[in-house]
Structures are given as structure tokens and as C-alpha cells.
């Protein structure tokens, strides 16, 4: 009986998820564009999904819960992407720029 070095350990998955989360946070703060921020949010959500799945596989008593939640996360991500992108396109149409900082004038 042998054990795999890497992929049998929950810690590896958690670490990857953590790195994705911090990547996402970094991007969310440092990038100015709306679409770049959306990308960062997607990274965070993926980290969350990976976490769900890892716990689901390794520690959860019910094997469907984590998968269900990951599905929900995906659905939310899709909805969020649709809304954000349409906002981005609409803003671009009106103001010719889609950097989040300069959107304070969007009050009309």
C-alpha cells in the first residue's frame, strides 16, 4: 500500500485555494479596471469553490453538500459576471473609460 505524495492531502488543496484568495485580494485592490476587478473576484470565488470541494471530499459526512455549494458559487459567479460586464459596457459607452476610481460622476 502506498500513498500519493501530494494529491491525497487536504492541505495542498487548501494552500492552493488560499493562494488564489490572496491573488484575488491583491488584484481587487491594486487593479483599477472594472473588468480586472471582476477577474480578481472570480479568482476569489474559485478559491472558495476549491475549498468547498476539498472539505467535501476529505472531511464532509455528506458528499453532495460541497458540490452543491460549488455549483451555487458558479451560478452566482455567472450572474455577477453578467451584471458587471453589462455595467462595464454601459459605462464605457457613456464615459469612454472603465476604471472604477473615476466613476464618482455617475450620478445622473
Amino acid at each position: 500500500m502506498i500513498q500519493p505524495t501530494f494529491f491525497g492531502n487536504i492541505e495542498v488543496y487548501l494552500l492552493v485555494a488560499l493562494i488564489l484568495l490572496s491573488f484575488g485580494l491583491y488584484g481587487l485592490i491594486s487593479r483599477p479596471g472594472l473588468i480586472s476587478m471582476l477577474i480578481s473576484v472570480e479568482l476569489i470565488l474559485n478559491g472558495a469553490g476549491l475549498n468547498f470541494m476539498a472539505f467535501n471530499t476529505f472531511t464532509a459526512p455528506d458528499k453532495t453538500e460541497g458540490a452543491t455549494f460549488t455549483l451555487f458559487v458558479m451560478g452566482l459567479a455567472a450572474a455577477e459576471a453578467a451584471i458587471t460586464l453589462s455595467i462595464a459596457v454601459a459605462i464605457y459607452r457613456r464615459f469612454r473609460l472603465i476604471t472604477a476610481d473615476n466613476l464618482s460622476g455617475m450620478k445622473d
Binding site: 487536504i10 492541505e11 467535501n56 471530499t57 476529505f58 472531511t59 464532509a60 459526512p61 455528506d62 458528499k63 453532495t64 458540490a67
Partner: peptide
Amino acid sequence: WSAAAKVTSGD
């Protein structure tokens, strides 16, 4: 992290 006590359903 330790494994759960029992598995109630598949995936």
C-alpha cells in the same frame, strides 16, 4: 483535518 465519521451519500 480529519475525515468525517460516516459517509451518507455518494457524489
